[in-house]
């Protein structure tokens, strides 16, 4: 991709807790091109959501960015003032949450919340905003949008609420949409509808998408590129087809096997071992304790992202020799 909309370089984030310092992100590299859709996959607690929130700079106060850069639209996010950041959130980046129930304010009508979002990003009169909002809702497949706008969040179903959240996210016509497990709380049929909707919208609007999920199937269905995260690192990044066809990192191989997307379909498999304690990281490669191919170097040095070829990178010492 020639135009990069978002690039994350060597991002380190720690959380200070009373139990010690948690190393949530340990050198993340990520690139999202204009109009591209990138899937961010990984196990629970690997730092997917932390990465998502750090892009809009809405992390908890206990979080601290110790190193790295986030470049959005050719500007460094981490150097922005609060006011400039508000401007970016207002106009350019949207985020959809996992739980649409919590993300809508329970005391306001759906319509009021959409109208407010529209008015925050564009200078619309109230009447225009109401029209626009109802159009947006119908576009997202909500029947009788005018009626829905008069309802309160608790009166809608989960799928409907998520549609409303997407409508609010789209109201500013963002350059980048970060969707943090947008379908995890929905049942399978609604899940498919919402995903279809998101990919449809993306194709029509030139918006970039960063889809955070733990479901490899969703990535295969919606995304062009995939970034696999493990213990706060993107350990493999590349085109979905390449990565799924020939995974290079042992963890990606394991993940795909578990997801039953490659290899013979057999009993439920799992990757032996658990993710490392993020308060107490191993000195070398973070995956080394679970890796069947580890050798001495893996225990001493942590691999950074090695570029295999254009648009494909892997953080694994095994590749160093293959690439040369």
């Amino acid at each position: 991709m020639s135009n990069t909309i978002l690039s994350v370089e060597d991002l380190h984030i720690i959380f200070r807790t009373y139990l010690g310092t948690v190393h949530a992100l340990n050198g993340v590299y990520l690139e999202v091109g204009q109009g591209e859709s990138v899937g961010l996959v990984g196990e629970t607690g690997c730092g997917k959501s932390t990465l998502g929130l750090s892009i809009v700079r809405l992390l908890d106060e206990s979080a601290k960015i110790t190193k790295g850069r986030i470049i959005f639209n050719n500007e460094s996010i981490l150097d922005k003032s609060q006011e400039e950041m508000r401007e970016i959130r207002r106009k350019y980046i949207s985020l959809i949450f996992q739980d649409p129930t919590a993300a809508l304010n329970p005391v306001y009508k759906i319509g009021d919340q959409i109208v407010e979002a529209l008015q925050m990003s564009r200078s619309l009169k109230k009447g225009e905003a109401i029209e626009e909002g109802s159009k947006l809702l119908s576009m997202l497949g909500i029947p009788e949008s005018k009626k829905v706008m008069e309802q309160y969040p608790h009166e809608l179903s989960g799928g409907m609420r998520q549609r409303v959240m997407i409508a609010i996210a789209l109201s500013k016509s963002p350059l980048l949409l970060i969707a943090d497990e947008p379908t995890s709380n929905l049942d399978v049929t609604i899940q498919a509808q919402i995903l279809e909707l998101i990919s449809e919208l993306r194709k029509n609007t030139k918006m970039s998408l960063l889809l955070i999920t733990h479901d490899m199937g969703i990535v295969a269905q919606v995304c062009e590129k995939v970034a696999v995260m493990y213990a706060g690192q993107v350990i493999e990044f590349g085109n979905v087809r390449d990565v799924f066809k020939s995974p290079l990192h042992p963890y990606t191989k394991g993940l795909l096997k578990v997801a039953n997307l490659i290899g013979e379909k057999s009993r439920l498999e799992s990757i032996p071992g658990t993710i490392p304690d993020l308060r107490n990281l191993p000195p070398g490669c973070l995956f080394s304790p679970r890796c069947p191919y580890k050798f001495s170097k893996c225990m001493q040095n942590r691999p950074s992202n090695i570029f295999v070829d254009k648009g494909r990178s892997v953080a694994c010492w095994l590749l160093e020799y293959k690439v040369g």
């Binding site: 929130l53 508000r86 959130r89 985020l95 993300a103 304010n105 979002a117 990003s121 959240m165």
Partner: peptide, 9 residues
């Protein structure tokens, strides 16, 4: 919803 409110600026 508080984060959501921040997200619309």
């Amino acid at each position: 919803y508080v984060i959501a409110a921040r997200l619309i600026g």
